[in-house]
């Protein structure tokens, strides 16, 4: 009872791959084990944790809740390995995470990075509250989220500065303001 294999073409981070997979191969496993892109992590395989989040045609989605054969219907998949710019310069959100100490063990990080990269495309200037809401669908067990929320705003700043004045200008920007602390959150 050998399983039927499907030959699929997946465009990941701009590169077209052809792989043979059984229909039940999850996209997360296909990326990690068939394509060797192990930056996409797996933390629950039931859609809650978000460690497996990738951008599918620019939209963040759970790669553990998609079969590779279905994913092949899409134009383009971006994983954490593909966030950097063409010259290898880190994406603003990658820089912001390091600057703001928004990661500890780093296991959840790729999922947050892809999520936020996708989010900032539509919401270039989120308030603290919006930033918190934006990352509220992914789990992190280490950081308590505070620095992740700061990193969203910092990434937005860096991104805007890059768009306006190029990367050099962005680096000169002041560090992310510490949002004031009274009154809790929503």
């Amino acid at each position: 009872m050998t399983e039927e294999l499907h030959e699929i073409r997946l465009r990941v981070n701009g590169i077209v791959h052809t792989v043979s997979v059984p229909a039940r191969r999850l996209l997360s496993d296909c990326l990690r084990h068939d394509l060797g892109l192990t930056g996409t992590h797996v933390g629950c395989e039931h859609g809650v944790c978000g460690a497996c989040t990738v951008l599918v045609d620019g939209r963040p989605m759970r790669s553990c809740l998609m079969f590779a054969v279905s994913a092949a219907q899409h134009e383009d998949i971006t994983t954490v390995e593909g966030l950097a710019g063409p010259g290898g310069e880190p994406h603003p959100v990658q820089r912001a995470f390091a600057e703001c100490h928004a990661l500890q063990c780093g296991f959840c990080t790729p999922g947050f990075l892809t999520l936020i990269a996708g989010y900032l495309e539509d919401n270039p200037d989120p308030s603290e509250e919006e930033a918190r809401e934006a990352v509220s669908g992914n789990l992190c067990r280490c950081t308590g989220y505070q620095n992740i929320v700061s990193a969203v705003q910092r990434a937005a700043e860096l991104r805007t500065a890059e768009v306006v004045g190029g990367p050099a200008r962005a680096a000169e920007e002041a560090p992310a303001p510490q949002p004031h602390s009274e009154g809790g959150h929503q």
């Binding site: 990690r32 892109l37 192990t38 930056g39 996409t40 992590h41 797996v42 994983t79 954490v80 390995e81 966030l83 950097a84 880190p90 990658q94 995470f97 390091a98 990661l103 780093g106 296991f107 990080t109 790729p110 990075l113």
Partner: peptide
């Protein structure tokens, strides 16, 4: 860890 370069067990 921010570029997907970590190496976790799996």
């Amino acid at each position: 860890l921010t570029t997907g370069g970590g190496s976790f067990l799996d």
